[in-house]
Design a protein around this nucleic acid. Structure first.
Length: 429
DNA sequence: AACGGTTGTCATCCG
DNA sequence: CGCGGATGACAACCG
């Protein structure tokens, strides 16, 4: 069952998410295409969770299956009871009504789901397509690992057009650090440090914990949600899984080319720690302080004769820098978890709708079989009556519509009257 | 001006 | 024990 597979395919449990990500995309595209096709009876059953999920409740409230006016009106237990009782000899008078009502409800649900799918396919025009969006990720610098690169481009496809935070351009804010240093502008040249940097062979992005390998099932949901509600938080999420890269590398060409006075001012204001480092004559860049591995970091410290204040500042800078990245990772991860949960909810909703639809199909076939059986009974009874018509009156037969055993009781009464007749004949003898 | 979102930072826990 | 990552909490800033 594909739905079960999809449900079990939790983004957290998939060890090989990178390879599966593109397949998910293909599936989604196919599903979208299918969803846009005219609906057929068979197609109803093909609704699976491969369709783009993460349809937020708030974005399409009319499909909320939790709505009592919708398919929820038929509780599962009711349907099961219905299924169980249809096999009994007592035809429930509400059976047909219930079935019809349920079918109507399910049809309404189908329509709602179909409308949703069409809205999704319309939202994903070529310019907005996932692949198109992912192209923007070519801007992002080489990631520490190839897998992460592919992961980021695929899993965060819906977000790449979104404004990725460029902290390097943001003014420093928030709590004040441990070392309070009077901030003055001093022009300390780093020219002599460059050579040292190259010797270190330091690779950007070596630091970082969260290696997101998750393939998001719900990329399109971002587009949807943004399209329908323009949720501000969604505009900044975007599953940008290039968490571990130094923020200076995450600057897009657009940012680099944007040399407006405001940005230059921000650039100037940014880097409180950078200024402190200059003030304290720290002989290497903050980027190195933050991103170097411990061993190389210690080696670097050993190369210079630094006083206690300088060492303290360097350690603070390193700690703050690492924690800054960790906080960013943490927040993005939190959003990912949230989105995955939404995907899970949506998948379960779809599964529930599918199961309800299957149940209705089963009920429908049961009803047809009962009608067929009834007609067979009637035919048999007509032939019996033709053979022994004198024994029965016409009003003796009343076919009970939609009953499983209309003739059984009839047959019982027939045999009963036959026995009476034989008894009378014997008495006459 | 109030408010919600974003971001940096600190404190703390944990491996 | 120190280090580094994760995360809750807080504050500053922004739209």
């Amino acid at each position: 069952m594909d739905t079960a597979e999809t449900i079990g395919d939790s983004p957290f449990s998939d060890p090989d998410r990178n390879t599966g990500s593109m397949e998910n995309f293909i599936h989604q595209d196919v599903s979208l295409h299918q969803a846009a096709l005219p609906r057929s009876t068979e197609a109803q059953n093909s609704v699976s969770m491969e369709e783009p999920c993460c349809v937020n409740n708030h974005s399409v409230p009319n499909i909320n299956l939790g709505n009592s006016s919708n398919a929820e009106a038929f509780e599962d237990s009711d349907i099961i009871d219905l299924l169980l009782t249809t096999g009994t000899s007592l035809p429930s008078p509400i059976d047909p009504l219930l079935e019809e009502a349920m079918l109507d409800e399910i049809d309404l649900m189908d329509l709602a789901l179909e409308e949703l799918s069409q809205a999704q396919s319309e939202a994903q025009n070529p310019a907005d397509s996932d692949s198109g969006l992912s192209l923007d990720y070519s801007q992002s610098p080489a990631s520490p690992s190839g897998s992460e690169s592919s992961s980021s481009s695929s899993s965060s496809s819906c977000s790449s057009s979104l404004s990725s935070p460029t902290p390097s351009l943001m003014p420093e804010e928030g709590a004040v650090g441990y070392t309070h240093i009077k901030e003055e502008d001093e022009d300390v040249s780093y020219t002599h440090i460059k050579e040292e940097d190259e010797d270190l062979g330091y690779t950007h992005g070596a630091v970082g914990g969260y290696m997101p390998e998750q393939t998001k099932m719900c990329q399109s949901s971002f587009l949807e949600a943004r399209q329908f509600h323009h949720l501000p938080w969604l505009e900044n999420i975007g599953h940008d899984h290039t968490y571990n890269q130094p923020q200076s590398q995450k600057k897009s060409p657009k940012d680099l080319s944007d040399e407006s006075p405001k940005n230059t001012m921000l650039e100037h204001l940014s880097g409180r720690d950078e200024k402190r480092a200059r003030l304290m004559n720290i002989p290497f860049s903050n980027e190195h302080i933050i991103n170097l591995p411990v061993e190389e970091f210690n080696r670097l410290l050993a190369k210079y004769h630094l006083n206690e204040a300088q060492l303290t500042l360097i350690r603070d800078i390193r700690r703050r820098g690492k924690n800054k990245m960790a906080a960013q990772n943490c927040r993005r991860r939190k959003l990912d978890v949230l989105l995955d949960l939404e995907c899970g909810v949506d998948s379960l909703r779809r599964l529930r709708a599918k199961l309800l639809r299957e149940k209705s199909e089963i009920l429908r076939s049961i009803r047809e079989m009962k009608q067929h059986l009834n007609s067979l009974y009637q035919e048999v009874y007509e032939r019996l009556r033709e053979e022994q018509g004198l024994l029965y009156s016409d009003n003796n037969f009343t076919l009970q519509e939609d009953s499983t055993r209309p003739v059984t009781s009839q047959r019982r009464s027939d045999s009963h009257s036959r026995r009476k007749l034989n008894k009378r004949q014997k008495q006459k003898k």
